[in-house]
Design a protein around this nucleic acid. Structure first.
Lengths: 197, 197
DNA sequence: GTCTATACGAGGATAGAC
DNA sequence: GTCTATCCTCGTATAGAC
């Protein structure tokens, strides 16, 4: 596994990394340039050099997050495993966030939707549309391979699965043992997807 | 239907009503005493007479919301209809919020969980525990009446359903047509609950 | 109970030196 | 690129008059 050990990450990337953790954990309104400043080790004013405004910063953040999500999905798709295994890996993406008490960036921003500038809203919609499209294709593969059936349509099943995963993250973070709650929520529904014994 | 037409609501109640709309729509960090002040028609300082701090205000808010939810659930339970009809009415509670672009108060606060004072966190946990208990009992009735089966347990199915409903609200509010998305998400899962043709 | 006035800090943002 | 210094607004909260 190649990582960045010893490599200097540029400042803009560091800012985005910290901001991402903050937004996923606290939401749009509850994180500030001062928070980023502390963790990155530069002054508040310096952040404005890289990202002129908060609106700009978060817009860039969602763009990057969207690309990252698509990369992950592509990786899963190209792994060559069966659709049911791919579905589990997809669910795993949501499960991973829990270790730092984080939910999906766009799930958090969907909650904050009413206070977001329009450009950010647009990016969020794009994220959900892309993710849904990918998941729909995966579900269709499973149907074709007779692994499962989707009623009344693969598109609706995809939406339902996304809602389930996001809701599971939401419920998990207010629970003491987040992982256990998440797994309990996921298991009945994903079990239904597998062939009957 | 008896309503409060002509009745003066006391100030504390008005404050809670406005605050509830605000929190459900914008979250904990993005609403202020100034917002309430405007809509209720009194000064910021006057709000502090009724609720000394924001923490206190929102704690009271969640307590009241929790009681309201339990009242609604009791009403459904005592309606004498079949479990499957009761389940639809329960889902309807979540659907109703959408008309004002609002999600469940506690779903919103679950997203904001990391920034909430401890007393509020406690109330939210209590809300979810109560709701889950009620829903578990309803699902059990349906099992007993052979209307459906719950795998691997009614408790897990209850959690899954709550996650689905909250996730559906989240996805609905970032969509142009919220109701349509919500209904699409709900229908595949709730349809499974009904007897096979 | 509600008001005016005010304290005090935090928030996002800009100007200009280095 | 990053700094210091500063602006202006908004946030929660308190004191004290009415």
């Amino acid at each position: 596994m190649v990582d960045n050990q010893g490599m200097e990450k540029n400042t803009a990337t560091q800012i985005l990394d910290v901001a991402q953790n903050m937004v996923r954990n606290r939401g749009y309104s509850a994180f500030s340039y001062a928070d980023i400043s502390e963790q990155v080790g530069i002054r508040k004013a310096s952040i404005h050099y890289h990202f002129p405004s908060k609106e700009n910063l978060v817009t860039m953040l969602v763009k990057r997050y969207r690309q990252g999500m698509m990369r992950e999905c592509d990786r899963i798709a190209k792994s060559g495993t069966d659709p049911d295994e791919q579905l589990m890996q997809f669910a795993q993406l949501y499960r991973n966030g829990l270790q730092q008490d984080q939910i999906c960036l766009c799930a958090m921003l969907a909650a904050d939707f009413a206070v977001l500038p329009y450009p950010i809203q647009t990016e969020i919609r794009a994220f959900f549309a892309e993710t849904e499209a990918w998941l729909t294709a995966l579900l269709q593969q499973g149907c074709d391979a007779q692994l499962w059936t989707c009623q009344p349509s693969v598109a609706q099943e995809a939406k339902s699965l996304m809602a389930l995963l996001q809701g599971a993250q939401l419920l998990a973070r207010s629970a003491e043992d987040g992982y256990e709650v998440f797994d309990q929520i996921i298991s009945p529904v994903l079990a239904v997807k597998l062939p009957e014994p």
